[in-house]
Lab assay of single mutants.
Amino acid sequence: EDPKKEILLAMLMVDKEKKGYVMASDLRSKLTSLGEKLTHKEVDDLFREADIEPNGKVKYDEFIHKITL
C-alpha cells in the first residue's frame, strides 16, 4: 500500500476530533503498531526529515508534503 496513504490513515485514526493535527507521540504509537509497522528508528528518521519535535504537533498536510518531496 502507498506509504503516504498509510500515514494519513494513521493520522486520521488518532485525530478523532478532526483538528488537522496530531501529537507526535500519538502518531509514533500508530505508525509502530499498524499496517507495515515502522521501527522507532524509522519514525525518528521521518520526524527528523519533516522537522517534527518528538513531543510536538504534527499537521497532516505539512507532514505529508515534507516526507514526500
Rank of each mutant, 00 (worst) to 15 (best):
residue 5 K to G: 06
residue 67 I to L: 15
residue 25 S to L: 00
residue 15 D to N: 07
residue 7 I to Y: 07
residue 54 P to F: 01
residue 21 Y to M: 11
residue 41 K to I: 01
residue 38 L to C: 03
residue 46 L to G: 02
residue 56 G to T: 12
residue 19 K to V: 04
residue 23 M to W: 12
residue 28 R to I: 02
residue 38 L to D: 01
residue 37 K to R: 08
residue 35 G to Q: 11
residue 43 V to W: 04
residue 25 S to G: 07
residue 26 D to K: 03
residue 48 R to W: 03
residue 27 L to S: 01
residue 40 H to N: 14
residue 48 R to F: 02
residue 29 S to W: 05
residue 32 T to Y: 03
residue 54 P to Q: 07
residue 56 G to H: 05
residue 27 L to N: 00
residue 49 E to W: 14
residue 7 I to R: 15
residue 14 V to L: 15
residue 62 E to P: 01
residue 40 H to I: 10
residue 37 K to E: 10
residue 8 L to M: 10
residue 21 Y to F: 09
residue 23 M to L: 12
residue 66 K to P: 07
residue 24 A to N: 07
residue 49 E to N: 01
residue 52 I to E: 03
residue 51 D to W: 00
residue 69 L to P: 15
residue 25 S to F: 00
residue 15 D to E: 12
residue 63 F to T: 04
residue 9 L to Q: 15
residue 33 S to D: 11
residue 56 G to R: 04
residue 49 E to D: 01
residue 21 Y to H: 08
residue 46 L to F: 04
residue 15 D to W: 13
residue 12 L to C: 10
residue 46 L to W: 08
residue 63 F to K: 03
residue 66 K to N: 10
residue 61 D to Y: 06
residue 65 H to I: 00
residue 3 P to E: 01
residue 1 E to L: 12
residue 32 T to L: 13
residue 1 E to T: 06
residue 48 R to Q: 14
residue 8 L to C: 10
residue 45 D to W: 02
residue 41 K to F: 02
residue 21 Y to G: 04
residue 6 E to T: 08
residue 17 E to Y: 06
residue 32 T to Q: 11
residue 35 G to F: 11
residue 40 H to R: 08
residue 4 K to A: 13
residue 34 L to C: 11
residue 11 M to P: 08
residue 8 L to H: 06
residue 4 K to P: 04
residue 10 A to L: 03
residue 10 A to S: 14
residue 16 K to C: 09
residue 50 A to C: 11
residue 17 E to T: 07
residue 55 N to F: 08
residue 20 G to Q: 06
residue 33 S to K: 10
residue 52 I to N: 01
residue 48 R to C: 04
residue 20 G to E: 14
residue 46 L to T: 04
residue 47 F to W: 05
residue 26 D to R: 01
residue 46 L to D: 02
residue 14 V to Y: 06
residue 45 D to N: 07
residue 27 L to F: 05
residue 35 G to L: 08
residue 45 D to A: 12
residue 23 M to A: 14
residue 57 K to A: 11
residue 14 V to G: 14
residue 64 I to Y: 06
residue 46 L to V: 08
residue 22 V to R: 02
residue 53 E to Y: 04
residue 17 E to D: 15
residue 43 V to E: 02
residue 34 L to H: 12
residue 18 K to Y: 04
residue 64 I to T: 04
residue 29 S to P: 02
residue 39 T to Y: 00
residue 11 M to K: 13
residue 51 D to P: 02
residue 8 L to R: 06
residue 20 G to S: 09
residue 13 M to V: 06
residue 45 D to L: 03
residue 4 K to D: 07
residue 25 S to A: 12
residue 8 L to N: 07
residue 54 P to S: 08
residue 42 E to D: 10
residue 2 D to P: 07
residue 59 K to G: 04
residue 20 G to C: 01
residue 2 D to I: 15
residue 29 S to C: 10
residue 37 K to W: 10
residue 36 E to R: 13
residue 65 H to V: 00
residue 29 S to A: 15
residue 53 E to L: 12
residue 66 K to G: 05
residue 3 P to C: 12
residue 58 V to Y: 15
residue 25 S to Q: 15
residue 4 K to Q: 09
residue 42 E to R: 01
residue 47 F to R: 02
residue 3 P to T: 14
residue 64 I to V: 08
residue 61 D to V: 06
residue 10 A to I: 00
residue 46 L to R: 04
residue 19 K to G: 09
residue 41 K to P: 06
residue 34 L to W: 13
residue 17 E to N: 13
residue 29 S to Q: 13
residue 29 S to V: 07
residue 24 A to S: 06
residue 42 E to Q: 11
residue 40 H to W: 04
residue 40 H to T: 09
residue 63 F to P: 01
residue 18 K to F: 03
residue 24 A to L: 01
residue 23 M to N: 15
residue 40 H to V: 11
residue 5 K to A: 12
residue 14 V to C: 12
residue 24 A to W: 03
residue 55 N to S: 10
residue 69 L to Q: 15
residue 6 E to N: 12
residue 57 K to Q: 09
residue 9 L to P: 09
residue 4 K to R: 13
residue 42 E to F: 06
residue 4 K to F: 13
residue 23 M to E: 14
residue 20 G to W: 00
residue 69 L to G: 15
residue 33 S to M: 06
residue 58 V to D: 01
residue 43 V to A: 02
residue 23 M to V: 06
residue 45 D to E: 14
residue 13 M to P: 12
residue 27 L to Q: 02
residue 21 Y to Q: 11
residue 67 I to C: 10
residue 14 V to R: 15
residue 14 V to T: 10
residue 35 G to N: 14
residue 61 D to G: 05
residue 52 I to T: 06
residue 22 V to K: 02
residue 36 E to W: 15
residue 13 M to I: 06
residue 5 K to Q: 11
residue 44 D to M: 05
residue 9 L to D: 14
residue 23 M to S: 15
residue 55 N to I: 02
residue 69 L to N: 13
residue 39 T to K: 06
residue 67 I to A: 10
residue 69 L to F: 11
residue 2 D to H: 13
residue 60 Y to G: 04
residue 6 E to F: 02
residue 1 E to A: 06
residue 18 K to L: 03
residue 65 H to Y: 01
residue 58 V to S: 02
residue 35 G to A: 07
residue 58 V to I: 12
residue 68 T to W: 09
residue 58 V to Q: 00
residue 19 K to F: 03
residue 56 G to Q: 12
residue 41 K to G: 08
residue 53 E to N: 11
residue 42 E to N: 02
residue 26 D to I: 00
residue 63 F to R: 01
residue 16 K to P: 09
residue 28 R to W: 02
residue 66 K to C: 02
residue 50 A to E: 12
residue 5 K to W: 12
residue 18 K to C: 03
residue 69 L to M: 13
residue 53 E to K: 12
residue 7 I to W: 10
residue 10 A to V: 00
residue 65 H to Q: 13
residue 62 E to L: 00
residue 42 E to G: 02
residue 25 S to C: 03
residue 28 R to G: 01
residue 36 E to L: 13
residue 56 G to L: 01
residue 17 E to A: 05
residue 7 I to M: 13
residue 55 N to L: 03
residue 64 I to C: 13
residue 34 L to V: 11
residue 21 Y to E: 14
residue 2 D to L: 08
residue 57 K to P: 09
residue 43 V to F: 00
residue 5 K to N: 04
residue 14 V to F: 06
residue 26 D to N: 03
residue 59 K to T: 09
residue 58 V to R: 00
residue 20 G to F: 00
residue 47 F to L: 10
residue 34 L to A: 11
residue 54 P to I: 03
residue 41 K to H: 06
residue 8 L to S: 07
residue 65 H to F: 00
residue 47 F to V: 05
residue 16 K to N: 08
residue 68 T to A: 14
residue 28 R to Q: 03
residue 48 R to S: 08
residue 19 K to N: 13
residue 42 E to P: 03
residue 19 K to W: 01
residue 23 M to D: 15
residue 44 D to K: 01
residue 62 E to K: 04
residue 67 I to V: 12
residue 57 K to I: 15
residue 61 D to M: 07
residue 43 V to N: 01
residue 40 H to Q: 15
residue 27 L to H: 00
residue 44 D to P: 01
residue 49 E to I: 07
residue 48 R to E: 12
residue 38 L to E: 01
residue 4 K to T: 11
residue 7 I to P: 12
residue 7 I to F: 11
residue 20 G to Y: 00
residue 43 V to S: 02
residue 37 K to D: 09
residue 67 I to S: 11
residue 37 K to P: 14
residue 57 K to Y: 12
residue 45 D to V: 01
residue 45 D to S: 07
residue 45 D to H: 07
residue 68 T to N: 14
residue 65 H to C: 02
residue 64 I to S: 05
residue 68 T to K: 15
residue 23 M to R: 13
residue 39 T to M: 01
residue 42 E to H: 00
residue 16 K to L: 09
residue 66 K to A: 04
residue 5 K to M: 11
residue 45 D to C: 04
residue 6 E to Y: 02
residue 63 F to L: 12
residue 52 I to D: 03
residue 17 E to L: 04
